[in-house]
Amino acid sequence: MVSAPRRSWQDAIADVPFFGKYGALVVLLIVWELFAHRYKSYVLPAPSAIAVALVKGLGTAELWGDIGISVRRVFFGWGAASVVAILFGFLMSSSRLFREQFAYLVRMLQPVPGIAWIGITIIWFGLNEMAIIGVIFLTVLPLVTVATYEGFLGVDREYQQAARTLGARSEWAVFTSVTVRAALPYLLNGLNIGFGQAWRVLAAAELVGATSGLGYFMQVNQTALRTENVFVVIILFTILMFAFERLIYQPVQRKVLGRWSRV
């Protein structure tokens, strides 16, 4: 007879469908809903009020317009930075001189809080798209550069050696047949981290230096004490990041990694 393995009470709760995972969230929302009525709605709007505001907001072209503008800024800034960063990271990984010359520069840029660039970009470009995109660009650039060059440098030399013994004649053949493929998971990870940072700095930049976008929408509603709409923006940021993870990043990652789990 094999006796059933003992389950702890924690496992028993965690295995309950839905509640095992979302129980804390449900309790939080209920408690919040009950307490919210003790305060003025501009101090602490109830979750139900926020939900109504979200649905109402999504019925307007204005909010959709701001979502579109913010998403576009993130993709432009992040995309442009990624292209430059991958090129830079590649050069740094393949040339020692290039690495020596630029490694410390990148390291100097890395600890700068992304939002600190807003002061410069507004002076350079004025209160417009370029100021916001510029901040995202400068935030993402060092991140993805480091991820790229560490990804390329970290490729196990045995793979490159194996490629050579199997007939890769030139450095370029080794690079295209093995190095890129082996570094790809690290590049993807760098791009993903860069994307998350792009969103974070976007919100801050739009609060300070924009006349459109979700950060601006939030700032307008904060000034008007329509607090439920401030929460709507916070929820939208979560939803948008989640959508990116689920709809773009994870499918790409699955495609690239395949069943390769030894990362």
């Binding site: 045995e158 013994t165 004649r169 390769w260």
Partner: peptide, 21 residues
């Protein structure tokens, strides 16, 4: 003068490409 011309090599480590079947 270089690798891969009529010689094949097997290493101690398992240097198979992990992204390939």
């Amino acid at each position: 003068t270089g690798p891969g011309q009529g010689r094949g090599m097997v290493f101690q480590s398992f240097d198979l490409f992990p992204w390939r079947s």
